[in-house]
Write a protein that binds this DNA or RNA. Structure first.
Lengths: 362, 362
DNA sequence: TTGTAGGCGTTATCAA
DNA sequence: TTGATAACGCCTACAA
């Protein structure tokens, strides 16, 4: 049998096509009796409305686009998975795209999505982007990395970072280094700010050079974390940080690796705290103390903002979700150090690559 | 200005709508001059053909669906990413869906995809599935986990496993355990077969009970790997395997963790070999010796089979891609053992959960 | 090569 | 509440 259309159903049910349409779309003004009859016929004929014809008229695709820089990042993978679940719950499907963290490609993807007439777009902006050329009239929400001209939802990166570093301070650490994320990432900047919030108020820098910020920039991935960790740790013990706050779990894990390569025991000789709360963070050796972002909450909020049209965050006033610090095995109080001449430490105390917070490159 | 349609373009260019359509679709029978003029107008007006109207007529959506069990598995994440890249290269977009490894949900997703009129579907079947109810007339290709009634492309799991275990044997190991994947996974079965291929021909079992297969089943994730590893290693040294072949990198990494928890040094006291070649495998401590699957090749092959319609693997004759064994730091020759009474080992030599290869549950 | 017109399967409008 | 009918934007014979 040829696939049946709405008119087949109408005819078989003895009603007009309009009525069938109303039944399909749950329009209130249909008698219960008629509705039942029509639905019976629909089931009988195995009728499935054609999404194209439908969208052509209604201008609604029930499709949303999601663009992320890199699915290899487990954090984004979790985001995509959660978003898909939420979208499905709202009766929508998801077109997935990767920007490979490239602004040009990202712009192209956005255009494609607009061409597809998606109902909305969720985007994790590519690094370095601070403004997005959104197709006119297309709901867009930025997730995780916030930008200036688009509504956003994200974790409270700054607050989370603050908690993490504060925790290290309470543990007794003073020489706390920070592996910052890429300079172009808004979330990386916020985490760095959180770090500086705490370290900056740590006491009198004249008295104790150790408490100066020690920051090195790196990409978010494992390997960059390892490189940054190696850089930070490859110096005499007296100059070496006793704790490292990494801007991502992947960096932190790379850091663990670096410490291991250098024969530095964690947490005995070094405390490491990560950020994100990817599943793996709980399975490393030692298990990673980290700041967990409530990913599924964030994804759901983004989706329902996009689809529900209510609760849409104002531009410039993003919705922020609190993070949770989980204390695991990679952090501990610093060990007693052999006497050292503090004057030798000045060099190490100098801020490194601190221009990360410099002017934005529009 | 209201968004312009094909007739606006036609009018503005002084041609008929049919001609414009022909230009859009690269139909050969259009004068170069006319084509140029039309294209100029298209650009001038910023005209974008409506995909719905277009698909409604042509029955082609330029959309493909991809359904995987779990994006949290970095291996699948890489697959999705590669597939998206390949699909984009073919002018298609990707609708992404998660089955959460649940057959019912998977079936529902397939139905949805069919309803969307996608041009084809790539699926990593959920565990335990050996046959797929494919929507009639919809090109479908199974990736990684092969099923009986659908064309498939995957890595040569069995060959890869064989190489890995063979490598351990050449290193001098005899008591080689295998952490098998879930019983329902075809790829897990193939890897187990590869393991058995080698261990089964290892010599005279009557003479040397050590060479009997030692298999324990587990899910593919970290935690299951850790549990399985703990189970395998929590016995007297003399009965303990000297090498473990895990069916996934995640399992292997969990295993590393278990070994560490039990104070067993790797590779000095235990060799571990994984499977998949996820990025993380190169960043663990120690770096993991593993079998790398050529994911992007596999994804590309799947896409071009689906879209190119040529090179479509025959049902029952899947396209297999060779894996590469990379030797890293988690494997080494077994260390000299203290004398032990071999007769005590018989129990450990018994196959465990070997029914993994039993009859399929259709 | 180009123009014309019919129809794809729905939804929306307007009467009844 | 229901029915009839005109769009929706495009493709594709078929005719010129």
């Amino acid at each position: 049998m040829a696939k049946s259309g709405i008119r087949d159903v109408a005819e078989r049910a003895g009603v007009a096509v309009g009525t069938v349409s109303r039944v399909i779309n749950d329009h209130p003004s249909v008698t219960a009796e008629v509705r039942a009859r029509v639905q019976a016929v629909i089931k009988e004929l195995g009728y499935r409305p054609d999404p194209f014809a439908r969208s052509m008229r209604s201008k609604i695709s029930r499709l949303i686009g999601i663009v992320i820089p890199d699915l290899t990042n487990p954090f984004f993978a979790e985001l995509v998975q959660s978003a898909e679940r939420a979208a499905t719950a709202h009766g929508h499907n998801v077109i997935f795209m990767t920007s490979f963290d490239d602004a040009a490609r990202e712009a192209d993807r956005l255009t494609q999505l607009a061409g597809r007439r998606v109902d909305g777009i969720i985007i994790v902006p590519s690094t370095g982007l601070h403004t997005i050329k959104a197709p006119k009239g297309l709901p867009l929400v930025a997730v995780d990395r916030l930008v200036d001209n688009v509504p956003g939802v994200a974790a409270d990166h700054r607050g989370g970072a603050r908690n993490a570093v504060d925790y290290l301070v309470r543990l007794g650490h003073r020489r706390i280094a920070c592996i910052a994320g890429p300079a172009g990432s808004a979330s990386a900047q916020d985490r760095l700010r959180g770090y500086l919030d705490v370290v900056g108020t740590l006491g009198d820098r004249q008295q104790d050079p150790d408490i100066a910020p020690l920051v090195v920039g790196a990409a978010f991935d494992y390997e960059s974390g390892r490189a940054a960790g190696t850089y930070l740790l490859a110096r005499p013990r007296a100059e070496r940080p006793t704790a490292i706050f990494a801007s991502s779990d992947q960096q932190a894990i790379g850091c663990l690796r670096a410490a291991n390569d250098l024969g530095i025991p964690v947490p005995a000789g070094l405390s490491v705290v990560g950020f994100d709360g990817i599943p793996l963070s709980n399975l490393t050796t030692p298990r990673l103390t980290t700041v967990i972002q409530p990913m599924s909450l964030i994804a759901e909020a983004a989706i329902s903002a996009l689809l529900g049209q209510r609760d849409m965050p104002k531009i410039g006033k993003p919705h922020l979700f609190a993070c949770e610090l989980v204390e695991r095995e990679s952090s501990a109080p610093p060990v007693q150090e052999p006497d050292v001449d503090n004057r030798l430490l000045t060099a190490a105390g100098e801020p490194l690559g601190i221009d990360l917070l410099g002017t934005r490159t529009e």
